[in-house]
Nucleic acid binder design. Structure first.
Length: 426
RNA sequence: GGACAGGUGGCCGAGUGGUUUAAGGCGCACGCCUGGAAAGUGUGUAUACGCUAAUCCCGUAUCGGGGGUUCGAAUCCCCCCCUGUCCGCCA
């Protein structure tokens, strides 16, 4: 959501920012609505003022037993115009808000311009990618050969884009989640949260899933939405709140299932568990002051990277160009893990600074100590990490071609009861 | 899911159509008093929009949310949401 006052102040700058997002100039249409609305409000408020004053007089006259019918007629005469203005004000406000809510966030100035992922820029690489001399199979093949991963059974039970795991792999998934949560809570200072997984319209609007991305979501028969990421409930913790700035930054983490229709992804990643309707993810969310968000963004990205370092998985971090960044993003770093089975890096985490974009939609504000005025908080979210994709990365990077087994990364052994290796079931 | 009772400022709480500009209390902030503190005492203490140099002043809106009746609504009517208690169901 954008600040109409800021657009009023510098319409050209706003159009320029939208142009980087491939959005045509919007300020003229927005300001026209805004101007008309304010003139309607000015007239309406002056009529309300008159009405209030005269009604008070009527009260005083009647209190003394006098006749106020002349004044009452006068106020009655204002009514039709007032109703008209109220209606107009409402309509204009709605169109203005709808228009503002449909536009993506402005991007940071230091972000590379670009049309798609081809123009993303690599910032750093950590770890040595294992070249595929050993002919590492795809994770789905590894999993099925282990006898612990079945897309067929999942398809029978549910349909396409689901997977069922058992034994060692089911436990490995749980171990990964535990390990990530423990690291974030004990080393990175995040507060663990167990949030609702079904949320209402307002919440989905707050983080920007609605109204534009409705077709990507699952909805219950009651009208609740299944969260597509824990970012949604975690960020909305501060919705409609005014928080003291001393208490910022606030850092939340949660381990939840995520549900996505993958509506626009037909034909993409149909094999394996890269892209599913349901997957587990450990999410990080930070709420900060405007001054803190840039540093917090770096910090959060490092927290995500730290998980991969501990798991000794090779990765690279990239900054998304203007054409590839998400709707609410001010700046986004993606972390991509090396998958030997695919012979390339694949997204495993996305860390975004949403500046005040979500805060405006949620009406989430903060107040500097001792000051009267409030301002909007900044919100950030990042995967820390996508558990399913991390499991894939472990399978492919720790695969042992000698016996088709998978070694357990040292960091996970305590969570796997000391197990060294997952071996195929006989 | 059903029945009943509720939802008023940071908190408690009065208020069933008009001097309510939401009483009063608590808390908080600042001052007075004091050697210092407590007690006492005075003042202030929501958010948004508009106007504006301004966080002053002024205007408007907001008493869970939305709509309606009325010259005038915290108060009356309708719909919805939430909380509590009891019943039912359930892990």
């Amino acid at each position: 959501m954008h600040d109409i006052k800021a657009i009023r102040q510098d319409p050209a700058a706003f159009d320029k920012a939208m142009a980087r997002r491939k959005v045509s100039p919007q300020s003229a249409a927005l300001l026209k609505l805004d101007e008309e609305r304010r003139s309607v409000q000015t007239e309406l408020q002056s009529l309300q003022s008159t009405r209030n004053e005269k009604s008070k007089e009527i009260g005083a006259i009647k209190g003394k037993g006098g006749d106020a019918s002349a004044l009452m007629d006068e106020v009655s005469a204002l009514k039709s115009r007032m109703t008209e203005l109220e209606e107009r004000d409402r309509t204009l406000g709605e169109s203005l808000n709808q228009h503002l809510a449909s536009l993506p966030n402005v991007q940071a100035l230091d972000i590379p311009d670009g049309d798609d992922e081809e123009q993303n820029v690599e910032l750093r690489k950590v770890g040595e990618p294992k070249r595929n001399n050993d002919k590492v199979p795809d994770h789905s093949e590894i999993g099925e050969k282990l006898g612990m991963m079945s897309f067929e059974t999942a398809a029978k039970i549910s349909g396409a884009r689901f997977v069922l795991m058992h034994s060692g792999l089911a436990k490995l998934e749980r171990a990964l989640a535990q390990f990530m949560l423990d690291t974030h809570t004990t080393e990175h200072g995040y507060t663990e949260v167990s949030p609702p997984l079904l949320v209402n319209d307002k919440t989905m609007f707050g983080t920007g899933q609605l109204p534009k991305f409705e077709e990507d979501q699952f909805r219950t028969t009651r009208g609740d939405w299944l969260i597509p990421t824990a970012e949604v409930p975690l960020t909305n913790i501060v919705a409609d709140e005014i928080v003291e700035e001393e208490t910022l930054p606030r850092r939340y983490t949660a381990f939840t299932p995520c549900f996505r229709q993958e509506a626009g992804a037909a034909g993409k990643d149909t094999k394996g568990m890269i892209r599913q309707h349901q997957f587990y993810k450990v999410e990080m969310v930070s709420v900060t002051t405007p001054e803190q968000s840039e540093a917090e963004h770096q910090r959060m990205t490092q927290c995500a990277e730290n998980i991969l370092k501990k798991l000794e998985l090779p990765f690279r971090t990239i900054v998304l160009c203007t054409g590839d960044a998400g709707f609410g993003s001010y700046k986004t770093y993606d972390i991509e893990v090396w998958l030997p089975g695919q012979g390339r890096y694949r997204e495993i985490s996305s860390c975004s600074n949403c500046s005040d974009f979500q805060a405006r939609r949620m009406n989430a504000r903060c107040r500097p100590k001792g000051e009267k005025n409030t301002r909007f908080v900044h919100t950030l979210n990042g995967s820390g990490l996508a558990v399913g994709r991390t499991l894939i990365a472990v399978l492919e990077n720790y695969y042992d071609p000698a016996d088709g087994g998978v070694f357990i990364p040292a960091a996970l052994k305590p969570y796997m009861g000391g197990l060294e290796k997952i071996l195929p079931v006989k």
